[in-house]
Each structure stands twice: as structure tokens, then as C-alpha cells.
């Protein structure tokens, strides 16, 4: 009898919980799933105006075009993958930064540094471009200082250097996102029990060893989850940064997949082709998410999905 009452209570409680998430389910359904009907234009020769039924059905033409378009696609995919790999390689930086910040004994200074480094995240890429132009252009601050000090005889311009495009853009991304990215690790660090540190101290561990043996394992789980998510999002390297910073010199290096889709879709009005590319991109992301999830299961024994 008691068991039945408990079961009924739990069932009721579960319904209540489900009811709580209903608005969010509707939100996701409306804004994430309903728009997927728009994918249908990838199978038609679509132009805005008449209904789809009045358009030519072209089947997989645009998907084939993606794989046959070797000239543009090889360049675009190379750029996209380069930035994706660079983003993955630099992914531990916020973690390292959080670890270092956590070790700063002066908490006010630590908070100050955290605020200063988080601030760039809220600056739009348009402003970042203006700042970069003021700093790095031929008559910019950096060149003026270096030439004033006699360190260089001719101005250098990293904004119009194709060879510097990959690392410069990645550096800007790190500058913009370092503080913001470290917040989640700082939150994870604050959740580590003080008893562990005390126990480590009793065992003779200094600050460095405590960091390596207590803090780092404590936030490793968070890092792995974020790593898996970013692998799933591997080829979505962004749009605005590259759109703003591209110029004729860096065009060949900064044209990533999202920018290419924009150029074809919105500038050339090839809505169908760009939708097909978007679908292929989503499919790749899906495969990578489930692939990395399975990999995580094998390595860690549990999954994130």
C-alpha cells in the first residue's frame, strides 16, 4: 500500500516536472524543429516567390554539386578545418588560465583580471576590427611604437598578411574568448571540496601539487564535456569574425564554410545550394557528436548524450 502511494506520488511529481519544461519544449520545437521544413528547398530550384510546388524538383543536384565543386570547396574546407583544428589545439588555454587565476592569492586582483579578460567577449567583431586597425595598420599604434624605438625600419601590417591570417585570427579569438571561457572552469574549481585540498596539504602537497592532483582532476570532467561538444561543432567555426576581417589579401585564407554559404546564398541568391551545404554541415556535426560520444563512452565509461 505504502509502495503504491509512493509510486503514485513519484508519477505525479514527474508529470509536474514535465509540465515545467513544456514551454522550453515548445520553444525548441518552434524554433529548432519547425524551421527544418525549410530544408526542403535544397531539393528544388528555389527562388523566393511562387510556392515550392511550382518549382523544379532537382533531387540531389545541389548535394552532388557540393562534392563536385572541388575548386572552391577544397579551399573553403581547408580554411574551415585549419581554424577548427587551431580552435581545438587552443581549447585548453581557458582551463590553464582558470588554474592560474585560481592560484592568485590576492582575490581582488584575481577578480580584476577575470573582469578585464572577460570584457572582450562582449565587444562585437566590428569594434574588434576597428581596434585591430588602429593597432596594427601601417600607421597604427604598434608600428608607430616599434618604428619609434628603432626596432623596425618599415611598417609591418598583419591585417594584410595572408601568411599570418590563420594565427592572427586565432589569437584574436583567444583574446576575445579567454576570460569568458575560463568562467565555467572557475565555477567548477569553486565546487571542489576544500577537504581535498586540506587532505593534500596534510600529505605534504604544495600549491603546485595541489593544483595538479586536486584542481586539475576536479575540472577534467568539465573540460572533456566541453571538448566533446566542440568536436561535435567542429566545422562551425563562425562567421562574423572572418566576414569582418576578410580583405582581398586574406580572402583565400578566411573564407570558411559559413562565409561561403553566405556568399552563395545571400549574395548570389543560390538559396537551394547554400541550404544543401548547410544540411551537409549539420549531418557532419551530427555524426561527429555521436562519434565522439561513443568514443567518450569507450574511454571514460559514460556518455554525455
Amino acid at each position: 500500500m505504502k509502495k503504491a502511494v509512493l509510486k503514485k506520488y513519484r508519477k505525479k511529481k514527474n508529470y509536474k516536472l514535465l509540465f515545467y519544461i513544456l514551454p522550453f519544449m515548445v520553444f525548441v520545437l518552434l524554433f529548432s524543429y519547425v524551421p527544418l521544413f525549410g530544408w526542403s528547398i535544397a531539393f528544388f530550384q528555389y527562388t523566393p516567390g511562387a510556392s515550392l510546388s511550382a518549382k523544379n524538383f532537382v533531387g540531389l543536384k545541389y548535394f552532388r554539386q557540393f562534392f563536385l565543386d572541388t575548386v572552391d570547396m577544397s579551399r573553403v574546407l581547408k580554411n574551415t578545418l585549419t581554424f577548427a583544428v587551431l580552435n581545438l589545439i587552443t581549447m585548453p588555454l581557458p582551463l590553464i588560465f582558470a588554474l592560474m587565476l585560481n592560484e592568485v592569492p590576492h582575490k581582488k586582483f584575481s577578480k580584476f583580471v577575470q573582469s578585464i579578460t572577460t570584457f572582450p567577449n562582449f565587444i562585437s567583431w566590428v569594434i574588434v576590427y576597428s581596434l585591430a586597425f588602429s593597432l596594427f595598420s601601417t600607421e597604427g599604434v604598434i608600428n608607430s611604437i616599434l618604428m619609434g624605438m628603432g626596432l623596425i625600419s618599415k611598417p609591418t601590417n598583419v591585417l594584410s598578411s595572408a601568411s599570418a591570417a590563420y594565427w592572427f585570427q586565432t589569437s584574436l579569438g583567444i583574446w576575445k574568448g579567454l576570460g569568458w571561457g575560463s568562467i565555467v572552469y572557475l565555477a567548477a574549481i569553486s565546487g571542489i571540496s576544500q577537504e581535498l585540498y586540506e587532505a593534500a596539504a596534510v600529505d605534504g602537497a604544495g600549491r603546485f601539487r595541489q593544483m595538479i592532483h586536486v584542481t586539475l582532476p576536479g575540472i577534467a570532467e568539465t573540460f572533456i564535456v566541453l571538448l566533446l561538444l566542440s568536436i561535435g561543432n567542429f566545422i562551425s567555426v563562425g562567421f562574423d569574425q572572418y566576414f569582418i576581417f576578410q580583405n582581398p589579401v586574406t580572402l583565400k585564407k578566411l573564407e570558411v564554410l559559413d562565409l561561403y554559404v553566405y556568399r552563395l546564398g545571400l549574395i548570389n541568391k543560390s538559396y537551394s545550394y547554400s541550404t544543401a551545404i548547410g544540411m551537409i554541415k549539420s549531418a557532419i556535426s551530427l555524426v561527429m557528436i555521436f562519434g565522439t560520444n561513443q568514443l567518450a563512452k569507450k574511454i571514460r565509461g559514460n556518455t554525455i548524450i
Binding site: V71, D72, P248, L251, R263, L264, S270, Y273
Partner: peptide, 20 residues
């Protein structure tokens, strides 16, 4: 036609990249 438009976009992208 869409294929002509696509060619235009690709060629102009190519030319722009070679301007420097």
C-alpha cells in the same frame, strides 16, 4: 540562371583574391 550566377560568384571571388 542559377549556374551562371554561381559561376559569376566563384569567378569574382577568385579575381578579388588575386587583386593584391
Amino acid at each position: 540562371p542559377e549556374d551562371i550566377g554561381t559561376k559569376k560568384t566563384q569567378i569574382e571571388g577568385l579575381l578579388e583574391g588575386y587583386i593584391p
